[in-house]
């Protein structure tokens, strides 16, 4: 397939960026989106030009590093799929594809398509943990957990911290990410102990990092590659209100 790409190029955080046009020739439909960009980059390097900088690591949909907005949709047109798992067969020969970085005040651009997502790490640092004594590993079944609770916690734990929810949100809000982390821990007996403190600290950090406020548009849920649901945001709100008393 032959494609025309419009890619956001920006030298560093402070310089002015713009969309630049590139041709991608002889792309196999079996390539992943990132492999297609690899092909384009190889050509750019051969021509002595600066390759397109983009984030990636596992390329198997689990690390949350890949982060591109493709034709206006974070992670591209295929639902519940990260960019690295998106394949070129979902595009047509001759397609024009716009590729842009995550956009949000809290995610400053480092270069081209790479943004700084450490704000999400700082939300985790603020309270996304359980305090336990170190020492011997406890017995797996020492604390009984009802199966539905364990399932909900596991669903929430699927979040890979990619930030697509922030990129999709018209308000640049990190509520879906934070909701996933808060729910994951609040569902379990080990996490309940610090639940009130955690939800306050994490939502406070969210605000300090410059993320926006949720207005219940649910764009985040539609963009999330891991199917994190907005009902977790309701759970987050519930935990926050409970923590006030």
């Amino acid at each position: 397939m032959n494609l025309t790409l419009f890619v956001w190029r920006q030298r560093d955080k402070d310089s002015q960026g713009k969309l630049e046009e590139y041709k991608a020739h002889d792309i196999s439909p079996d390539m992943s989106f990132l492999e297609m960009l690899d092909v384009v980059n190889e050509r750019l390097i051969k021509e002595g030009k600066e390759p397109i900088a983009f984030d990636h690591d596992c390329r198997e949909g689990i690390c949350g590093m890949c982060s591109q907005v493709i034709n206006g949709i974070p992670h591209g047109p295929q639902g519940k799929t990260t960019v690295c798992q998106l394949h070129m067969r979902h595009f047509k020969d001759g397609d024009r594809i716009y590729i842009e970085p995550w956009r949000a005040r809290a995610f400053p651009i480092i270069k081209d398509l790479i943004v700084d997502r450490s704000a999400l790490d700082r939300i985790i640092q603020a309270g996304g943990y359980v305090s336990v004594h170190t020492g011997g590993v406890p017995d797996a079944n020492a604390i009984l957990i009802p199966k539905p609770d364990a399932d909900t916690a596991m669903d929430a734990a699927e979040c890979i911290g990619c930030g697509a929810c922030v990129a999709a949100c018209p308000n640049g809000s990190a509520m879906l990410f934070t909701a996933a982390k808060v729910t994951h821990l609040a569902m379990l007996p080990q996490g309940k102990v610090e639940a009130a403190r955690r939800v306050c600290l994490m939502t406070e950090q969210m605000l300090k990092e410059g993320f926006g406020n949720c207005t219940n548009h649910y764009e985040c849920q539609a963009a999330c590659p891991k199917g994190i649901k907005v009902s977790f945001i309701a759970k987050l709100n519930r935990e926050f209100i409970k923590a006030q008393f």
Binding site: N71, R103, R105, A106, P170, G172, G212
Partner: peptide, 11 residues
């Protein structure tokens, strides 16, 4: 919220 999303997408 406007300030938290200073730039939108071209699409």
């Amino acid at each position: 919220n406007k300030k938290a999303k200073p730039i939108g997408y071209s699409v």
